[in-house]
Design a protein around this nucleic acid. Structure first.
Length: 374
DNA sequence: GCGGATCAC
DNA sequence: TATGGTGATCCGC
Protein backbone atom coordinates (compact mmCIF):
# COMPACT_ATOMS: atom_id res chain seq x y z
CA UNK A 1 0.00 0.00 0.00
CA UNK A 2 1.31 3.42 -0.92
CA UNK A 3 2.25 5.58 2.09
CA UNK A 4 -0.25 3.42 3.92
CA UNK A 5 -0.79 5.05 7.32
CA UNK A 6 -0.63 8.50 5.80
CA UNK A 7 -3.05 7.51 3.05
CA UNK A 8 -5.55 6.17 5.58
CA UNK A 9 -5.40 9.38 7.59
CA UNK A 10 -5.78 11.56 4.50
CA UNK A 11 -8.77 9.52 3.39
CA UNK A 12 -10.44 10.21 6.72
CA UNK A 13 -9.47 13.88 6.75
CA UNK A 14 -9.55 15.08 3.13
CA UNK A 15 -8.50 18.59 4.08
CA UNK A 16 -5.01 17.10 4.54
CA UNK A 17 -4.86 15.90 0.99
CA UNK A 18 -2.82 18.67 -0.53
CA UNK A 19 -0.72 19.37 2.53
CA UNK A 20 2.50 17.81 3.70
CA UNK A 21 1.65 15.42 6.51
CA UNK A 22 3.11 12.49 8.35
CA UNK A 23 1.95 9.87 10.81
CA UNK A 24 3.75 9.49 14.10
CA UNK A 25 5.02 11.85 16.77
CA UNK A 26 7.63 14.50 17.33
CA UNK A 27 9.93 11.64 18.34
CA UNK A 28 9.34 9.32 15.44
CA UNK A 29 7.44 9.25 12.17
CA UNK A 30 6.03 6.06 10.72
CA UNK A 31 5.42 7.41 7.26
CA UNK A 32 4.67 10.58 5.36
CA UNK A 33 2.60 11.48 2.34
CA UNK A 34 4.19 12.37 -0.96
CA UNK A 35 3.91 16.11 -0.41
CA UNK A 36 6.02 15.79 2.71
CA UNK A 37 8.51 13.57 0.94
CA UNK A 38 9.33 16.43 -1.39
CA UNK A 39 10.86 18.13 1.64
CA UNK A 40 12.87 15.07 2.56
CA UNK A 41 10.49 13.94 5.26
CA UNK A 42 10.78 10.16 5.50
CA UNK A 43 9.65 7.22 7.53
CA UNK A 44 11.76 6.55 10.64
CA UNK A 45 12.65 10.22 10.91
CA UNK A 46 12.06 12.06 14.19
CA UNK A 47 9.14 14.45 13.88
CA UNK A 48 11.03 17.44 15.25
CA UNK A 49 13.65 17.08 12.56
CA UNK A 50 10.98 16.64 9.92
CA UNK A 51 9.48 19.89 11.16
CA UNK A 52 12.77 21.66 10.53
CA UNK A 53 12.78 20.37 6.97
CA UNK A 54 9.14 21.22 6.50
CA UNK A 55 7.75 23.71 9.04
CA UNK A 56 4.19 23.30 7.73
CA UNK A 57 4.26 19.55 8.25
CA UNK A 58 1.15 18.24 9.95
CA UNK A 59 1.81 15.27 12.20
CA UNK A 60 -1.05 12.90 12.95
CA UNK A 61 -0.74 10.40 15.78
CA UNK A 62 -0.91 6.74 14.79
CA UNK A 63 -4.25 4.92 14.86
CA UNK A 64 -3.25 1.33 14.57
CA UNK A 65 -6.78 0.02 14.95
CA UNK A 66 -7.77 1.92 11.86
CA UNK A 67 -4.83 0.61 9.85
CA UNK A 68 -5.57 -2.91 10.99
CA UNK A 69 -9.16 -2.61 9.83
CA UNK A 70 -8.15 -1.33 6.38
CA UNK A 71 -5.46 -3.98 6.16
CA UNK A 72 -8.07 -6.65 6.74
CA UNK A 73 -10.18 -5.28 3.90
CA UNK A 74 -7.22 -5.47 1.57
CA UNK A 75 -6.33 -8.98 2.64
CA UNK A 76 -9.87 -10.14 1.93
CA UNK A 77 -9.13 -9.36 -1.71
CA UNK A 78 -5.68 -10.93 -1.75
CA UNK A 79 -7.14 -14.26 -0.67
CA UNK A 80 -8.85 -14.56 -4.05
CA UNK A 81 -5.50 -14.64 -5.79
CA UNK A 82 -3.58 -16.73 -3.30
CA UNK A 83 -5.37 -18.19 -0.28
CA UNK A 84 -1.93 -18.90 1.16
CA UNK A 85 -0.59 -15.35 0.76
CA UNK A 86 2.10 -14.13 3.11
CA UNK A 87 1.54 -10.82 4.90
CA UNK A 88 4.77 -9.09 5.91
CA UNK A 89 3.05 -6.23 7.74
CA UNK A 90 -0.23 -4.34 7.66
CA UNK A 91 0.54 -2.88 4.27
CA UNK A 92 2.62 -5.46 2.46
CA UNK A 93 2.29 -9.07 1.36
CA UNK A 94 3.69 -11.69 -0.97
CA UNK A 95 1.44 -13.79 -3.17
CA UNK A 96 2.14 -16.77 -5.38
CA UNK A 97 -0.33 -16.28 -8.21
CA UNK A 98 0.90 -19.25 -10.26
CA UNK A 99 -2.22 -21.31 -9.66
CA UNK A 100 -4.53 -18.36 -10.00
CA UNK A 101 -3.09 -17.64 -13.43
CA UNK A 102 -3.56 -21.22 -14.53
CA UNK A 103 -7.21 -21.12 -13.55
CA UNK A 104 -7.64 -17.69 -15.00
CA UNK A 105 -6.70 -18.77 -18.52
CA UNK A 106 -10.03 -20.55 -18.80
CA UNK A 107 -12.13 -17.92 -17.12
CA UNK A 108 -14.98 -16.42 -19.13
CA UNK A 109 -15.05 -12.68 -19.34
CA UNK A 110 -17.71 -12.21 -16.69
CA UNK A 111 -15.39 -13.60 -14.03
CA UNK A 112 -12.89 -10.88 -14.84
CA UNK A 113 -15.41 -8.11 -15.12
CA UNK A 114 -15.82 -5.36 -12.58
CA UNK A 115 -17.94 -2.31 -12.24
CA UNK A 116 -16.17 0.83 -11.34
CA UNK A 117 -18.47 2.52 -8.94
CA UNK A 118 -18.20 6.12 -8.29
CA UNK A 119 -20.65 8.10 -6.26
CA UNK A 120 -21.91 11.11 -8.10
CA UNK A 121 -23.81 13.72 -6.23
CA UNK A 122 -26.82 15.22 -7.96
CA UNK A 123 -26.56 18.83 -8.87
CA UNK A 124 -28.22 20.81 -6.20
CA UNK A 125 -28.16 24.52 -5.61
CA UNK A 126 -26.94 24.18 -2.05
CA UNK A 127 -24.11 21.88 -3.02
CA UNK A 128 -20.81 22.69 -4.56
CA UNK A 129 -20.50 22.14 -8.28
CA UNK A 130 -19.85 18.51 -9.07
CA UNK A 131 -16.34 19.12 -10.27
CA UNK A 132 -15.39 20.04 -6.75
CA UNK A 133 -16.37 16.59 -5.64
CA UNK A 134 -13.71 14.96 -7.70
CA UNK A 135 -11.68 14.57 -4.55
CA UNK A 136 -13.90 11.61 -3.71
CA UNK A 137 -13.12 9.89 -6.92
CA UNK A 138 -10.38 7.43 -7.50
CA UNK A 139 -7.52 9.05 -9.34
CA UNK A 140 -6.84 5.58 -10.66
CA UNK A 141 -9.40 5.67 -13.39
CA UNK A 142 -10.33 9.25 -13.81
CA UNK A 143 -7.17 11.21 -14.04
CA UNK A 144 -6.06 12.37 -17.44
CA UNK A 145 -3.49 9.66 -17.68
CA UNK A 146 -4.87 6.88 -15.52
CA UNK A 147 -1.85 4.93 -14.31
CA UNK A 148 -3.42 1.51 -14.38
CA UNK A 149 -5.11 1.73 -17.73
CA UNK A 150 -2.32 3.54 -19.51
CA UNK A 151 0.41 1.11 -18.62
CA UNK A 152 1.95 -1.18 -21.15
CA UNK A 153 0.17 -4.42 -21.63
CA UNK A 154 -3.23 -3.06 -20.79
CA UNK A 155 -4.61 -3.80 -24.22
CA UNK A 156 -6.80 -6.50 -22.76
CA UNK A 157 -8.46 -4.01 -20.58
CA UNK A 158 -11.70 -2.51 -21.77
CA UNK A 159 -13.65 0.33 -20.32
CA UNK A 160 -17.25 0.76 -21.27
CA UNK A 161 -19.71 3.25 -20.01
CA UNK A 162 -23.18 2.04 -19.27
CA UNK A 163 -26.18 4.20 -19.84
CA UNK A 164 -26.15 6.58 -16.89
CA UNK A 165 -29.93 7.00 -17.08
CA UNK A 166 -30.43 3.42 -16.06
CA UNK A 167 -28.87 4.08 -12.72
CA UNK A 168 -29.94 7.63 -12.02
CA UNK A 169 -32.48 9.25 -9.75
CA UNK A 170 -31.97 7.26 -6.64
CA UNK A 171 -32.50 9.88 -4.00
CA UNK A 172 -29.63 12.32 -4.06
CA UNK A 173 -27.04 9.88 -5.25
CA UNK A 174 -26.87 7.73 -8.23
CA UNK A 175 -24.30 5.21 -9.23
CA UNK A 176 -22.48 5.84 -12.42
CA UNK A 177 -21.04 2.54 -13.48
CA UNK A 178 -18.32 1.71 -15.87
CA UNK A 179 -17.60 -1.82 -16.85
CA UNK A 180 -14.01 -3.02 -16.85
CA UNK A 181 -12.77 -6.36 -18.10
CA UNK A 182 -9.31 -7.47 -17.06
CA UNK A 183 -7.21 -9.86 -19.13
CA UNK A 184 -5.68 -13.19 -18.21
CA UNK A 185 -2.02 -12.24 -17.93
CA UNK A 186 -0.16 -11.77 -14.67
CA UNK A 187 -0.11 -8.05 -15.24
CA UNK A 188 -3.83 -7.95 -15.80
CA UNK A 189 -4.52 -10.05 -12.74
CA UNK A 190 -2.42 -7.72 -10.62
CA UNK A 191 -4.05 -4.65 -12.10
CA UNK A 192 -7.38 -6.20 -11.23
CA UNK A 193 -6.20 -6.83 -7.71
CA UNK A 194 -5.06 -3.24 -7.29
CA UNK A 195 -8.23 -1.98 -8.90
CA UNK A 196 -10.36 -3.90 -6.42
CA UNK A 197 -8.24 -2.68 -3.53
CA UNK A 198 -8.70 0.90 -4.59
CA UNK A 199 -12.41 0.53 -5.22
CA UNK A 200 -12.87 -0.99 -1.80
CA UNK A 201 -10.56 1.15 0.29
CA UNK A 202 -10.01 4.28 -1.82
CA UNK A 203 -6.29 3.64 -1.33
CA UNK A 204 -3.72 2.78 -3.95
CA UNK A 205 -1.15 0.01 -3.97
CA UNK A 206 1.95 -0.84 -5.94
CA UNK A 207 3.10 -4.27 -7.00
CA UNK A 208 6.02 -6.20 -8.38
CA UNK A 209 5.60 -9.32 -10.49
CA UNK A 210 8.61 -11.57 -10.86
CA UNK A 211 9.80 -15.19 -10.81
CA UNK A 212 10.88 -15.02 -7.17
CA UNK A 213 10.31 -13.09 -3.96
CA UNK A 214 13.55 -11.12 -4.00
CA UNK A 215 12.89 -9.80 -7.48
CA UNK A 216 9.21 -9.09 -6.88
CA UNK A 217 10.08 -7.06 -3.81
CA UNK A 218 12.54 -4.97 -5.79
CA UNK A 219 10.00 -4.62 -8.61
CA UNK A 220 7.32 -3.35 -6.30
CA UNK A 221 9.43 -0.25 -5.74
CA UNK A 222 9.96 0.50 -9.40
CA UNK A 223 6.70 2.27 -10.18
CA UNK A 224 5.67 3.44 -6.78
CA UNK A 225 3.22 4.95 -6.03
CA UNK A 226 0.21 3.38 -7.71
CA UNK A 227 2.12 1.37 -10.27
CA UNK A 228 3.44 -2.06 -11.02
CA UNK A 229 6.37 -3.65 -12.76
CA UNK A 230 6.97 -7.13 -14.11
CA UNK A 231 10.11 -9.13 -14.75
CA UNK A 232 9.22 -12.09 -16.94
CA UNK A 233 10.64 -15.52 -16.13
CA UNK A 234 13.40 -15.15 -18.67
CA UNK A 235 17.02 -15.58 -17.73
CA UNK A 236 18.35 -12.85 -20.00
CA UNK A 237 15.78 -10.34 -18.82
CA UNK A 238 16.51 -11.15 -15.18
CA UNK A 239 20.25 -10.78 -15.70
CA UNK A 240 19.68 -7.52 -17.49
CA UNK A 241 17.49 -6.22 -14.68
CA UNK A 242 19.96 -7.21 -12.00
CA UNK A 243 22.94 -5.83 -13.87
CA UNK A 244 22.84 -2.23 -12.68
CA UNK A 245 20.69 -2.79 -9.61
CA UNK A 246 22.18 -1.01 -6.57
CA UNK A 247 22.85 -3.59 -3.89
CA UNK A 248 21.03 -1.46 -1.32
CA UNK A 249 17.76 -2.14 -3.13
CA UNK A 250 18.07 -5.82 -2.36
CA UNK A 251 16.04 -6.93 0.65
CA UNK A 252 18.47 -8.13 3.32
CA UNK A 253 21.25 -5.76 2.35
CA UNK A 254 20.93 -2.86 4.74
CA UNK A 255 22.92 0.20 5.63
CA UNK A 256 25.84 -1.60 7.24
CA UNK A 257 26.29 -4.26 4.59
CA UNK A 258 26.04 -1.61 1.91
CA UNK A 259 28.89 0.33 3.52
CA UNK A 260 31.04 -2.77 3.81
CA UNK A 261 30.46 -3.70 0.19
CA UNK A 262 30.94 -0.12 -0.96
CA UNK A 263 34.33 -0.14 0.76
CA UNK A 264 35.22 -3.00 -1.55
CA UNK A 265 34.14 -0.98 -4.55
CA UNK A 266 30.88 -2.87 -4.88
CA UNK A 267 27.82 -0.81 -5.72
CA UNK A 268 25.83 -2.88 -8.20
CA UNK A 269 24.87 -6.50 -8.44
CA UNK A 270 27.23 -7.02 -11.34
CA UNK A 271 30.12 -5.94 -9.16
CA UNK A 272 28.77 -8.16 -6.43
CA UNK A 273 29.07 -11.11 -8.77
CA UNK A 274 32.50 -10.10 -10.06
CA UNK A 275 33.92 -9.86 -6.54
CA UNK A 276 32.64 -13.29 -5.59
CA UNK A 277 36.11 -14.68 -4.87
CA UNK A 278 37.00 -11.79 -2.58
CA UNK A 279 33.65 -12.02 -0.80
CA UNK A 280 34.07 -15.74 -0.20
CA UNK A 281 37.19 -14.92 1.80
CA UNK A 282 35.94 -11.86 3.67
CA UNK A 283 32.46 -13.04 4.56
CA UNK A 284 30.96 -16.14 6.06
CA UNK A 285 29.93 -18.96 3.82
CA UNK A 286 26.24 -18.22 4.15
CA UNK A 287 26.71 -14.49 3.54
CA UNK A 288 28.74 -15.20 0.45
CA UNK A 289 26.17 -17.68 -0.74
CA UNK A 290 23.44 -15.11 -0.25
CA UNK A 291 25.42 -12.50 -2.17
CA UNK A 292 25.94 -14.93 -5.02
CA UNK A 293 22.25 -15.80 -5.15
CA UNK A 294 21.35 -12.13 -5.23
CA UNK A 295 23.87 -11.30 -7.92
CA UNK A 296 22.33 -13.97 -10.13
CA UNK A 297 18.81 -12.74 -9.57
CA UNK A 298 17.85 -15.82 -7.59
CA UNK A 299 15.47 -15.84 -4.67
CA UNK A 300 12.84 -17.86 -2.87
CA UNK A 301 10.02 -19.16 -5.00
CA UNK A 302 8.10 -20.67 -2.16
CA UNK A 303 6.05 -18.63 0.28
CA UNK A 304 6.85 -20.19 3.60
CA UNK A 305 4.51 -19.14 6.33
CA UNK A 306 6.19 -18.41 9.63
CA UNK A 307 5.65 -21.05 12.25
CA UNK A 308 5.13 -20.39 15.91
CA UNK A 309 6.68 -17.28 17.33
CA UNK A 310 10.12 -17.78 18.82
CA UNK A 311 10.33 -14.85 21.15
CA UNK A 312 8.36 -12.10 22.76
CA UNK A 313 9.90 -8.97 24.15
CA UNK A 314 9.12 -5.51 25.35
CA UNK A 315 11.37 -2.51 25.33
CA UNK A 316 11.01 1.18 26.02
CA UNK A 317 13.23 4.17 25.52
CA UNK A 318 13.30 6.50 28.49
CA UNK A 319 15.06 9.64 29.51
CA UNK A 320 18.06 9.32 31.77
CA UNK A 321 17.18 8.40 35.31
CA UNK A 322 19.56 7.71 38.16
CA UNK A 323 17.29 6.99 41.08
CA UNK A 324 17.18 3.31 41.81
CA UNK A 325 13.53 3.49 42.79
CA UNK A 326 12.59 4.91 39.42
CA UNK A 327 14.63 2.32 37.62
CA UNK A 328 12.95 -0.47 39.54
CA UNK A 329 9.62 1.09 38.80
CA UNK A 330 10.39 1.01 35.09
CA UNK A 331 11.40 -2.61 35.37
CA UNK A 332 8.14 -3.42 37.04
CA UNK A 333 6.19 -1.63 34.29
CA UNK A 334 8.05 -3.59 31.65
CA UNK A 335 7.43 -6.85 33.45
CA UNK A 336 3.79 -6.00 33.76
CA UNK A 337 3.47 -5.18 30.05
CA UNK A 338 5.24 -8.35 29.06
CA UNK A 339 3.08 -10.39 31.36
CA UNK A 340 -0.01 -8.95 29.69
CA UNK A 341 1.36 -9.72 26.25
CA UNK A 342 2.14 -13.26 27.30
CA UNK A 343 -1.35 -13.66 28.71
CA UNK A 344 -2.84 -12.63 25.38
CA UNK A 345 -1.23 -15.57 23.65
CA UNK A 346 -1.58 -17.85 26.60
CA UNK A 347 2.15 -18.29 26.82
CA UNK A 348 3.46 -19.54 30.08
CA UNK A 349 6.72 -21.03 31.23
CA UNK A 350 8.52 -19.38 28.34
CA UNK A 351 11.91 -17.75 28.50
CA UNK A 352 11.67 -14.00 28.33
CA UNK A 353 14.12 -11.16 28.04
CA UNK A 354 13.59 -7.80 29.60
CA UNK A 355 15.49 -4.97 28.06
CA UNK A 356 15.96 -1.47 29.34
CA UNK A 357 17.30 0.85 26.77
CA UNK A 358 18.59 4.38 26.80
CA UNK A 359 20.38 6.50 24.27
CA UNK A 360 23.60 6.38 26.27
CA UNK A 361 23.43 3.08 28.04
CA UNK A 362 21.64 -0.18 27.96
CA UNK A 363 20.84 -2.45 30.86
CA UNK A 364 19.75 -5.96 30.28
CA UNK A 365 18.28 -8.25 32.81
CA UNK A 366 19.08 -11.89 32.45
CA UNK A 367 16.66 -14.05 30.65
CA UNK A 368 14.33 -15.79 33.03
CA UNK A 369 11.53 -18.27 32.88
CA UNK A 370 8.03 -17.02 33.46
CA UNK A 371 6.46 -18.97 36.29
CA UNK A 372 3.20 -20.58 35.50
CA UNK A 373 0.97 -18.91 36.41
CA UNK A 374 2.77 -15.56 36.29
C1' DG B 1 23.24 -21.06 24.55
C1' DC B 2 23.88 -16.25 24.72
C1' DG B 3 24.49 -11.58 23.34
C1' DG B 4 25.75 -8.31 19.79
C1' DA B 5 24.95 -6.82 15.25
C1' DT B 6 22.06 -6.40 11.47
C1' DC B 7 17.75 -6.08 9.04
C1' DA B 8 12.80 -5.37 7.91
C1' DC B 9 8.73 -3.01 8.75
C1' DT C 1 11.91 18.93 24.59
C1' DA C 2 12.52 15.54 21.28
C1' DT C 3 15.89 9.81 17.26
C1' DG C 4 10.61 3.75 18.24
C1' DG C 5 9.21 -1.04 19.04
C1' DT C 6 9.00 -6.02 17.74
C1' DG C 7 10.74 -10.12 15.91
C1' DA C 8 14.06 -12.76 13.20
C1' DT C 9 18.66 -14.39 11.83
C1' DC C 10 23.56 -14.87 11.76
C1' DC C 11 27.84 -15.19 13.97
C1' DG C 12 31.51 -15.21 17.33
C1' DC C 13 32.45 -16.77 21.64
Amino acid sequence: MDAFYAAVEVKDAPELKDKPMAVGSMSMLSTSNYHARKYGVRAAMPGFIAKKLCPNLIIIPTNFDKYRAVSKEVQEILVDYDPNFLPMSLDEAYLDITEHLQQRQNWPEHKRMYYCHREVKENRDDLQPPCDDLGDISPLLFEDSPPILSQQGSVHCEVQQTDPHLQSNEKELHQQKEKIVFGVTAEEAVKEMRFRVEQKTKLTASAGIAPNMMLSKVCSDMNKPNGQYRIPADRDVVIDFIKNLPIRKVPGIGKVTEKMLNALGITTCTELYQQGALLSILFSESSWHHFLQVSLGLGDTHLERDGDRKSMSTERTFSEISKAAEQYSLCRDLCHDLEEDLQKEGLRGKTVTLKLKNVNFEVKTRACTVPSPV
